[in-house]
């Protein structure tokens, strides 16, 4: 990762840890934000290709329910999380083989449809999923250690930060690689890829499966943090939330998703409680404003304020 990313990444990580140390309840909020940041990184890859999925909460739910279903048999988080990511990958590949044939409207809406089908199955197949009651997840061990609540929460947060840094670095490498650089071609004119001997569908499929794996992993972390999973995880509002965070953070950098997710979760803790029935409306209005007036999101604002000014000096 180049210095322009590494510096704010480590500074941000330090700030998150400092804030969490000063206000204990923030550990939970930040861990959830980092988990969502992972999923939003996947949304960002798809947005690079000009595609938007209104159904990626599906993969969050797949990851979370994988943890919930296997937790009675597997007690170790270092196994549970890879399983969650693997489940996301497998479902992502199956769905992706179908949806990667489509673009734009179809791509967005087919994803929405798949996630809503999954939601209704989670709700209706009570025998396996306990329906809307959801499933409790016993706190797993971490590297063989059964931790007390405070230690567990700290480990989750630090682990989440480490994962975010590592995967953020990998994502930036991916975006710079030929495959990542080919993504924008899908947005503008994908026949150019075909004439270079490359299947545009396969390029999109790779990005899609990566995004599903990231969301699956994020879902696993969410299940291990909230210790309770419900069908609501795959409801459309949560897919919308991921898209919202991606746009809020801005598509210009792999740090955008984490910046967006942390700001979003902090605001949500207060605002969603104050306006439970108006929260989506606020999100929708802010989304409209960003799209119409500040298309590069928070990261774009950061670039304008800090990087441009720094370069001029």
């Amino acid at each position: 990762m180049d210095r322009r990313l590494a510096l704010p990444a480590f500074a941000g990580a330090a700030l998150v840890i400092a804030l969490a140390a000063s206000a204990p309840w923030l550990k939970f909020v930040f861990t959830i934000a980092l988990a969502k940041g992972l999923a939003v990184t996947g949304i960002l890859l798809l947005l690079r290709a000009g595609q938007v999925s209104f159904g990626h909460a599906l993969y969050i739910a797949v990851g979370a329910y994988t943890v919930a279903f296997t937790r009675p048999h597997v007690g170790e988080m270092l196994l549970l999380l890879p399983l969650a990511a693997a489940a996301g990958t497998i479902v992502g590949l199956a769905v992706g083989l179908f949806v990667a044939r489509y673009r734009d409207i179809f791509f967005g809406m087919l994803n929405l449809a798949f996630s809503m089908v999954f939601y209704s199955l989670l709700e209706k197949l009570y025998e396996y999923t306990k329906g809307t009651d959801g499933i409790r997840v016993a706190r797993p061990t971490i590297a063989g250690m059964a931790l007390e609540r405070v230690d567990y929460e700290w480990t989750m947060l630090i682990g989440g930060i480490a994962l975010a840094l590592a995967l953020g670095w990998l994502a930036s490498r991916f975006l710079a690689s030929p495959l990542g650089q080919a993504l924008p071609a899908i947005k503008t004119r994908e026949t150019r890829l075909e004439f270079a001997g490359i299947s545009a569908k396969r390029v999109l499929l790779v990005a899609y499966v990566i995004s599903a794996a990231l969301a699956g992993l994020g879902g696993g972390i969410i299940a291990c943090t909230t210790l309770h999973v419900t069908p609501l995880l795959s409801y459309w509002t949560h897919s919308g939330e991921l898209v919202f965070i991606a746009i809020l953070g801005g598509g210009g950098s792999v740090l955008g998703p984490y910046l967006g997710a942390i700001v979003y979760e902090l605001v949500r803790v207060y605002a969603a409680a104050a306006f439970p029935d108006g929260w989506q409306m606020i999100l929708g209005a802010v989304l409209l404003l960003i799209i119409l007036f500040a298309a590069r999101g928070l990261w774009g604002i950061y670039e304008d304020l800090v990087l441009r000014k720094g370069r001029r000096a």
């Binding site: 490498r173 690689s177 030929p178 080919a182 890829l193 270079a196 001997g197 490359i198």
Partner: peptide, 13 residues
């Protein structure tokens, strides 16, 4: 890259 290593690895373009 399309002619060669397109699907392989994370080396920069």
């Amino acid at each position: 890259a399309a002619h060669g290593r397109f699907w392989r690895g994370l080396r920069p373009l």
